[in-house]
Every structure is written in structure tokens, then in C-alpha cells.
Write a protein that binds this DNA or RNA. Sequence first.
DNA 1: CTGTTAGCGCTTTCAG
DNA 2: CTGAAAGCGCTAACAG
Lengths: 340, 340
Amino acid sequence: MTTLSESQDEHRHATRTDVAKLAGVSTAVVSYVVNNGPRPVAEATRERVVNAMNELGYRPNALARALKLRRAHAVGVVVPDVSNTFFGALARELSDQAFTAGYALMLGDANNDLERERAQIESLVSHQIDGLIITSLEPNSEADVRGTRTVYLDRRVQPGQTSIIVDDLGGAEKAVQHLVWHGRRRIAHIGGFATLPGADARLQGWMNACASAGLSTDGLLVRSDFTRAGGLNAGRELLARPDRPDAVFVASDVQALGLLAAAREAHVRVPEDLAVISFDGTDDAVFSDPPLTAIEQPIAALASAALAAVLTPEQPVQTRIPVTLVVRDSCGCPPMPHAD
Amino acid sequence: MTTLSESQDEHRHATRTDVAKLAGVSTAVVSYVVNNGPRPVAEATRERVVNAMNELGYRPNALARALKLRRAHAVGVVVPDVSNTFFGALARELSDQAFTAGYALMLGDANNDLERERAQIESLVSHQIDGLIITSLEPNSEADVRGTRTVYLDRRVQPGQTSIIVDDLGGAEKAVQHLVWHGRRRIAHIGGFATLPGADARLQGWMNACASAGLSTDGLLVRSDFTRAGGLNAGRELLARPDRPDAVFVASDVQALGLLAAAREAHVRVPEDLAVISFDGTDDAVFSDPPLTAIEQPIAALASAALAAVLTPEQPVQTRIPVTLVVRDSCGCPPMPHAD
DNA sequence: CTGTTAGCGCTTTCAG
DNA sequence: CTGAAAGCGCTAACAG
């Protein structure tokens, strides 16, 4: 009964013509039953076609379909580094939501490199994706997306470009204010390099809040990659400074993990000697030692806003995504049991 | 001088016909210069064509090319969950290496769900990818890949299927032997559910090594998802048992992170009261508290073996990938300073 | 209700 | 060295 095992061998897939021939109908009819329209098909005919399709193990060729319809049913996403927990979670959410909406996901990892990012965008665009979601390393560059609907995540606005703006600035301010409320006075910042998405706004928020509280920021800034190792080095440097900070606002969860390692090394207790708040609020923050108080980005909302922006005709050019402060143990608030 | 800004607006890309017209040549010639072959082109003509391409901002349509050549220059990968650090790192490596080889990457997240996995595979195959890399939730199923070159990562062999076999069994044995060497006698295992890739082999390795050392495994097994939360729950359960283990071999880094959290909660010291070794050896293991001794999978080697298997005609049907024990602090060996 | 057919943008054989 | 034309698999008029 299974001709399936046979069709495994042949390297040439069955085509619509084969099906039409076998079912004794025209190719148009096959199309109508596959797409369930746009013209009706007699029930008997439809059944013959369906049988033929099963017989041959027929699968529509999405490429040919895309070429004809000018719609690939695929969206692209490029991120600086998928192995960063935050981007990993984002990719997962996007893959899920895109799939549900009937779209495949093409992923381009920029490898934290501007030139690679450019090349990945180029590649995705040439594959005729229907939409492109970019967390760019270069907030000011105008990537050559050639008319592909594009949304920039987590970056500064550029005239005419549609973007999803996470409230990096407000979140950073909120974090620092919380540290101030805890009575901390020397509040340092481990930031991301200027090219990293959100880095500058988070830094700005730190400076604003410090200024408002009458705190100096001199000698309290170190920048690094959005990696654990980067956070470790930055943390070492900060903790080795003569006038050690009593709190740090960190620009990403992964960097905060590095800072915690540095603190352990230097026998600096968190939160007693050093209060820490990070940005992202991924699982990394939940399961660290101590668990990190963090500014949490709503990843699912981010993903769905991005997809909507790129897949739905009428959408606002700009969407603001709010963030929330989630208190755990690293800021000095009374510790809470693990949620689970 | 830039007609680029104009071509941004038009939603219909320039096509090969447009270029040919503008350059006053035939479409064949445009093809020859774009592909640098297969026929030679006079230098003067070539220049005219190149100018026309720039003028129009022409980009070849990869879909049309793929349809003609029966080669999409894209590979697909499906993983249970990209937000798992290990799969995230794998995806990054694959994106990188595939890009370098001239291929785009289509990502399908299975969401830890068998049905979703099946559907993602189906979708990728319909997009005519040149190769498919699967870490399957169902080591015994014969996914319907319809002649698409497919390689299974991290799963049991199936006759006729090509696969990259990580030495899960040997690695697990090595880990448990190390624990035995440390004098541990009640060595528990936090495993993955049977559907998770590698889970069963790692469990088997644990059982083998325990048997060889004359140790019982009764009441020392808990399974969970490959997630931090899963590891936390498993750890809580294990540590609450009357006859608490003095060591745990954990099937993944993320679960180990959960176990460490459970240990902190229960005031169980690692490694003094509880030695821990995990499987994966991602950055999660490097930056945890304490840093995790782990069986490390060589992700770059894995990725390149997978790509080779799927993109290169003559390749062995089976490749074995060795793993190594990387000693850090969680097993009870003298602690080492952070590498950097 | 069904068949014919013209393309989508590209490659490449076959003639000049 | 270059042009004309067939065709990859599919959709959707347009005709029956």
C-alpha cells in the first residue's frame, strides 16, 4: 500500500504535472484542490486528485509558488548573536509565531560583526523574504533592503524606517532609581559597546538617573560585549578600581552573569557589598546566584509587534514597548523563593 | 548620482530583463556576467552591464535561480528549543558556517513538541532546502523528508539515515567515573525525558558506570525537560528524598543551573555536600556558581560535520563526535581561576 | 465545473 | 562573443 518508501529514493520530487496526469485532470484543477480555490472542484474529481497526490507523495514546491505569487511565505531575522540568551529567546518566539502565521523563518547571525550583518541582510533580501526583522549593530546605517518590508528592533528611529522601540532609556532610569532608593551612592554601569542594540540608550538612562539623584558617574563606566566573558572582564576592572562602586546597573543579563563571577572571585558579596540590576530579564536572571533583579523585556510582545509590523499592511511606523522592573535578590530587596 | 534612493520606493525590484534592456544586450549576457560564466563576455560589454546593474540597483532573485537550478542555496535546521543555550550556540555556529559556504539558514523551532517538529520539517522541505539538519525529539520516527538530504544530530542510528552521533554514552560514563573517583557513592541522575535528544544514551551511560562501580541507582533518577526550571524541580525532588545523593550527573547544562538553584535553596553545598557534573559544556557551565565540571560537546565540529554531511556528496553515513571532560569546580576538584 | 496557456525571473543549449 | 528560446513548478486569467 505504501509507495512512500519508493518515493524516498527518487531524488526528483513529484510535480503538479505528474499528479494531473495520474488523476486524469488538468494542472489547473490540481491547483484548485491544493489551494482550495479560487475555483470550485467537483467532489469526485477532488477525490481523484487527492488520491493521486497521496500516491505520488506530492508536495507543492514553495519556491515555484513564491516566484509566481511574489510572496515567499518566509520572514528573515538578523541578530548580533543567537547564542546570547536574549536573542535566543527572541528567535524562538519569532520562529513560533511566524510558523503559526504560515511563514518560515530565515535566520542570519551577524556574529557581532557589521560587515557580516550587511552580508546577511543582503542574502536574506535576495531570497525574496516577505519581511525582515533586524536588531542592528549600526543604528544609523541605512541597510540596502531594496523595498523589502523591514522593521528595526531595539534601535534608534531613522526617518521613514519602521521600528519597534524598547524603552531602554526609561528602563535604565527605573533600574538606577531603584538602586538609589536602596541608598546606593556609587552606582556604576557595565554598558555595551556603542554598536550593540540598546547600549547607548541604557547608558544614557543611567547617566540621567544619576544626574537627577545628584550622583557622579566619573570613573564608573566600563563597556564590553554582550557576553558573559565581557561582563567578567568589565566586572574585574570595576572591582579593582580604588574607589569601588556599591552598585552596578548592567546592560544585559549575560554581562551580569560575568559580573557575578567577578564578584565571587573578589569576595565581594552581592547584594550586601554590591547591588546589581541587569537588563533583559531572561531565564539567565532567574537562575543566577543570586537571582538578578532585572528590567524585563516582554519578548513575546516584541516578537508579535515585529511580525505584525512586517506582515500587516497598515501598522504604525513606530511602536513603543514598555519594560518592567522585576525584583529578585541582587538589588538588596528581601530575597524571594524561586517561583519555580 | 544615486538613483538608489529612488529604487527604495518602488516595490518591484529590477529584473534581469530591465538590466539587459538598459545595457542593450540580451538577458543571457547579463546572466554570464552575474555568474561570471559559463560563457565569456567582452570586457566592454561586461562594463556596460555592470553599470546598468548599479544604475538599477539590481539584485538577482535567489528564488528564480533556485527554481531553475534546483538548488535553493539554503539549509534547514530544526531544534527542540533555540533558547536552550546549547541549541542557541549550535544555531549560531550553523548560521556562520552555512553563510560562509554560501547558504542561507532556515530555522525551525520545534517548541519541544513532536507534532510541531513534524510540521516544521514539512515546511522546510517544501521550501526546497538543499539540506536538513535535525535534532529530533523522536529518534525512531522516519520523518517524511522526501528525498531532501538529511542528517540527524545527536540521535540513535536508523538504517539508511545518515547521522552525527555524539558520544553521549561514553561521555556519561566518563562523568560518572569521575564522580566515583572522587569517592562518591550515591550518584544520582537528572535526565531528560525520553524524547529529548541524547537523553536516553546519557542515562544509559550513568547506569553502566554505576553498575561497573557496584553502585545502586535505585531511587536516584529524576527526569525533566532540558530547561532551567525542569532542573530546579528535579533537584528539589532529589534533595528532598530521605537518602540524599552525594553527587549528581545532569543531562544538560541548563538543568544543572536549576539543580544549583535547588541546592542553594536547600542549603546543600556544591561540591562539598553534592558533587555535580553536567553535559554540554556551554558558557552556562563556565559562569555558574560554582562553575560546572562538564562533558563538553565540540559545537563547531558538530556543525561542520553536519553541514558537510548534508552538502557534500560523498560522506560517511555515520560520524562519531567525541566529547571531553572539562574539570571545573562543581565536582570537588581544586577550584581553578576563571580562564577569562 | 474543467482545460489551455501565459508568465514569475532565471540559466543554458543551440544558433548565429 | 552574443541572441533567442525553452523550461524549472506553479497560479490564475480566459475559454470553453
